[in-house]
């Protein structure tokens, strides 16, 4: 599976990373080289193997339904690059 320039642009767009036209070829070479190297995994017989989803092997603990957090809008907003009152602000989105 080899990535063409259109796929590079599509991935970049999905990942919301701006890619300039002149960067596409370099990225294509680099990503194809990594993916080509990863192809070695096709040698492994994985028939009937259950995928391992995470690092831990136990059941999930649940917490109690108690309000223990929040209530500090100033802290939540303190790092915001743009805000308006107690809202985060972004360029207008049209729905």
């Amino acid at each position: 599976m080899s990535l063409d320039p259109a796929t590079i642009r599509r991935i970049a767009s999905l990942a919301r990373i701006r890619v300039e036209e002149h960067e596409v070829e370099t990225l294509q070479t680099e990503l194809n080289s990594i993916l080509g190297w990863i192809e070695q995994l096709n040698e492994v017989n994985v028939d009937g193997v259950e995928p391992l989803t995470g690092g831990a092997r136990m059941a999930m603990k649940m917490r109690d339904d108690v309000v223990t957090d929040g209530g500090y809008p100033e802290k939540v907003l303190a790092n915001a690059p743009d805000r308006n009152g107690d809202f985060f602000a972004v360029p207008k989105v049209v729905e």
Partner: peptide
């Protein structure tokens, strides 16, 4: 529920903006 699905902040309707928000 009193608190959110994955965090301990409150769920009440109509609160001041971003007042029921945790870092999570």
């Amino acid at each position: 529920s009193n608190a959110k699905l994955f965090s301990g902040s409150a769920t009440a309707f109509g609160a001041e903006p971003n007042s029921q928000v945790s870092f999570v």
